[in-house]
Design a protein around this nucleic acid. Sequence first.
DNA 1: TCTGCACCGTACAAGTTGGACGGTTACCCC
DNA 2: GGGGTAACCGTCCAACTTGTACGGTGCAGA
Lengths: 192, 192
Amino acid sequence: MASYIALGVTARRGPTTSYDLKRYVAESIGYFWQIPHAQLYAEPQRLEDLGLLRSRSEDGGRRRRFFEITDAGREALAAWLADPSTDAPELRDTGLLKLHFGALATPGDVRALGERQREVREERLQRFLEFEAEYDGRPGQEHQLVTLRLGQAYERMFAAFWQQVADSAEDLADGRVASIEMRFLTDGEDGG
Amino acid sequence: MASYIALGVTARRGPTTSYDLKRYVAESIGYFWQIPHAQLYAEPQRLEDLGLLRSRSEDGGRRRRFFEITDAGREALAAWLADPSTDAPELRDTGLLKLHFGALATPGDVRALGERQREVREERLQRFLEFEAEYDGRPGQEHQLVTLRLGQAYERMFAAFWQQVADSAEDLADGRVASIEMRFLTDGEDGG
DNA sequence: TCTGCACCGTACAAGTTGGACGGTTACCCC
DNA sequence: GGGGTAACCGTCCAACTTGTACGGTGCAGA
């Protein structure tokens, strides 16, 4: 997957170093697809060997190595984008893990967990709102913006969920699950 | 993290084999925390060395190895559950990655992506609704149920989001992002 | 001039992964 | 009761991934 990130970013930005990729990932893609930076040095090399990228290095100074996409690279990228199927989406959330085992914890633990997680989610939401404020509105960024909006809705939903958990920690411990109204449930048409 | 899963599951189920852990993870925890099965064989061993689990093996037949939690294990688990802080939650969603690069794709690609992803999310939602139907209502499972309800809301939100994406693929390509109403936004009090 | 920090890349030990394998028991159909 | 197959149970290990440590460059400010 790191390969398509390298292809996609070079396709949009032109000449790009691995370091650029690393920063780009850190402030955008990283929110829904993490990559260790070592991969962002190894992958472009591999892609160059496959003829999907080409590179040129600076002679002096920092000897930076810029990668550009080739026509073959554009084709590979387009083919990938044209395929709507994907690997199963994954989640890794230690908070949910702790909640899952909530019956082994005290209600106080669960309340504290809910409150802390709500804070975390609200901080993330705040960051995402700032990202939107920084959005420069240049054409061609609409898809990123939509993704960002999803992120905002996402964090809002989790924040509301965790608030509910904190509020109902005692009820849960007493077996009253029905009292959780699940206000955070989405707005859309009900049923699947 | 695999260690706390091993501790938590043995604490709740009593004697448990690694194979049991594997199945338990596959049908519940795995939805928000994946573990390769090899870890579920290696970790309990490590925990036994630390004195947090103890094991006994069958003499004959399948020579299954059952793990049980020790008092020290319970303490370690309780300490973990009492700590509301967690690592940053992570997401891995190839669909969002493709959407992020939507400007490099055709509107038709984006529409197909949206439709396919909506299907995927709706299948998952369906599965989660079935899980709830199978829920046996024994006391002590309230926290699992709440987690499951979050999962349902989660899938519903994504399904609605992807539907919107499919519906507005053309608009996005023409730079009209405002037309996306984001109906999927959550219901709660507005603002952070 | 010096100091610190952001920039840029590489190397590699340690850990993780998943797939292949090998055996056991239960069940079903003949 | 014989044969086949599928689920059960565990181990092994080669290939890959990961993070961290390191080493250097250029720029800006004290």
